[in-house]
Simulated assay, not measured.
Amino acid sequence: MTIDNTSVRITRRRPHLAAGVVEILVRDIVQNLYPVGSALPPENILCEQFEVSRTVIREATKALIEKGLVDSQQGRGTIVCETEAWDMLDPMVLSNMFKREDGLIYLDNLIEIRALLEASMAAKAAAKATPEDRQQLIRLRANLEELRDNPAEYLAEDIALHGMIMEISGDKLSAAIIRTIHDQAREAAKYNGRISTGLLNATHLGHLKIVDAILGGDSDAAARAMHEHIESAWSNRRES
């Protein structure tokens, strides 16, 4: 059987082309270049703008509809939906929410969610930690202590500590929610702030309180320490 190589090549490229169009249009919609209630440019204009076929634009539009960003309306075109319809947990949508001019509002909201969920998981970890879990937490605490003069490596170990606590808690759903929103937040310059010795020391003290509470099996203290740590760390970064 003879295979049309040109046809195969086009078929393979389309998903890549559509993904690139989707990425740009998601950015432009979420960051308000196309406000809620406005229409995207007609199909032929988008084809010219992105130098792609109508098939690619239709595939991209379908992806935008699946993300809740637009709705195809007879006689009106492709209309940007109200924000309530947007899939805020979609990584592409979420990443651009944090990069909006009002992105700090959504980062503040993220911190509220993180503080509540991670506090709950810290409490569960304090109640469920096995001797092996405690030994691993002790090792992580020692690593953090050694890295206090190395912010970049400290951050990696910081992430490992929070991940370990989530794993010990056994709360897979909360962990999945946090990882989804937190991974996107880390891409936003507004979220990371500037690292200083003072901020690193405050962060480290917060970690010590959390680990000590978990090692002591004190669920209330672990939840309280985690909640305070996340909120205070964000407050410091937000003002830096």
Rank of each mutant, 00 (worst) to 15 (best):
N5V: 12
N5R: 09
T6S: 14
R13S: 14
H16M: 13
A19D: 04
G20C: 02
E23A: 12
V26Y: 02
D28Q: 11
Q31H: 07
L33Q: 11
Y34F: 08
P35N: 01
S38Y: 04
A39I: 08
E43T: 11
N44A: 07
L46Y: 08
S53K: 06
S53M: 06
R58G: 05
E59I: 13
A60N: 04
A60G: 10
L64A: 01
L64S: 05
G68E: 00
Q74R: 13
G75P: 01
G77A: 03
I79D: 01
C81D: 03
D90F: 01
V93P: 02
V93G: 00
G103L: 00
L104W: 12
L104C: 09
L104D: 11
Y106R: 02
A115Q: 04
E118N: 05
M121K: 00
A123F: 03
K124I: 06
A125H: 04
A126G: 00
K128M: 13
K128F: 15
Q135G: 14
Q136D: 11
L137D: 00
R141E: 06
A142F: 10
N143T: 13
N143E: 15
N143R: 10
N150T: 10
E153N: 12
Y154R: 06
Y154W: 08
I159D: 13
L161A: 11
L161F: 09
H162I: 14
I165K: 01
S169Y: 01
K172E: 11
H182Y: 15
A185Y: 06
E187K: 10
A189F: 15
Y191T: 03
N192A: 09
N192P: 08
T197E: 15
G198W: 04
G198V: 14
L200Q: 14
L205G: 15
H207W: 01
L208M: 08
I210Y: 00
I214S: 00
G217M: 02
M226Q: 07
A233D: 12
S235F: 14
R237S: 06
R238S: 15
R238I: 12
E239N: 14
